[in-house]
């Protein structure tokens, strides 16, 4: 359902060109739980950003449901970002000015859904991550683990086809990290969610269906 064809990505800063990814071919099937591993700076985040349509590859193309992305202009890309993909970030990236429930409903704002329905869906997503009681709190009133669960609720509220998690447990202690892992596992098993997760933790990687290893911008087999 998500295909990377010959993807390369380089960054131009000052006079130095950094090649973050080169010649990546990858296919994520529906219902898979894939982990991505590799040393720091090898290009994992860049890979995930390209999968999530947040960044444009320098070469190659991304295909969602067998349809190649034709352009990264707003009118072609925002709908796909909104409906197909749910992103989970290492540092949560919740909006501190908004209450938990308003953070969770955020993806739905960019769809044609009534306020009432948005709130109902957001409440259901919060219940799924076990944070129903925190609906009206602000993010800063929650622990790191709780904040990441809010972020997961936000990622799943719009029922995207794929969840992309960039080191979702990287900022959490091992206990909280394990809770997040369990939550992702249950989403995978019970809701047949497709998940791609970057991790540094071999144990967590082992719990996923497949592990992709990246080294110096290339896939290692």
């Amino acid at each position: 359902m998500l295909k990377l064809n010959n993807i390369s990505k380089s960054f131009q800063t000052d006079r130095i060109e950094t090649i973050a990814l080169s010649n990546i071919n990858l296919h994520i099937e529906k219902g898979e739980f894939v982990s991505v591993m590799g040393p720091s700076g090898c290009g994992k985040s860049t890979l995930l950003n390209i999968m999530g349509l947040l960044d444009q590859p320098s070469e190659g193309n991304v295909a969602v449901d067998d349809k190649a992305i034709e352009s990264y202009q707003d009118k072609h890309i925002t709908g796909l970002r909104n409906e197909k993909i749910g992103f989970i970030f290492q540092s949560f990236h919740l909006i501190h000015d908004l209450r938990v429930i308003d953070n969770v409903e955020l993806p739905l704002l960019y769809r044609n859904i009534s306020a009432k329905e948005r709130k109902a869906l957001a409440a259901a997503a919060l219940e799924k991550v076990g944070l129903k009681a925190r609906t009206h709190h602000y993010p800063t009133q929650l622990s790191g683990g709780q904040q990441q669960r809010v972020a997961i609720a936000r990622a799943i509220v719009g029922k995207p086809e794929i969840l992309l998690a960039d080191e979702p447990t990287g900022n959490l202690d091992s206990h909280m990290g394990d809770e997040i892992m369990k939550l992702l596992e249950s989403l995978h098993q019970e809701e047949q969610a497709t998940i791609v997760m970057v991790t540094h933790d071999e144990e967590m990687a082992k719990r996923t269906g497949r592990t992709i290893r990246v080294f110096d911008g290339q896939l290692v087999h």
Binding site: R81, I95, P107
Partner: peptide
């Protein structure tokens, strides 16, 4: 960044 990631247009 977050809003854009979740589909907000410019």
């Amino acid at each position: 960044g977050v809003r854009k990631s979740f589909g907000a247009s410019t």
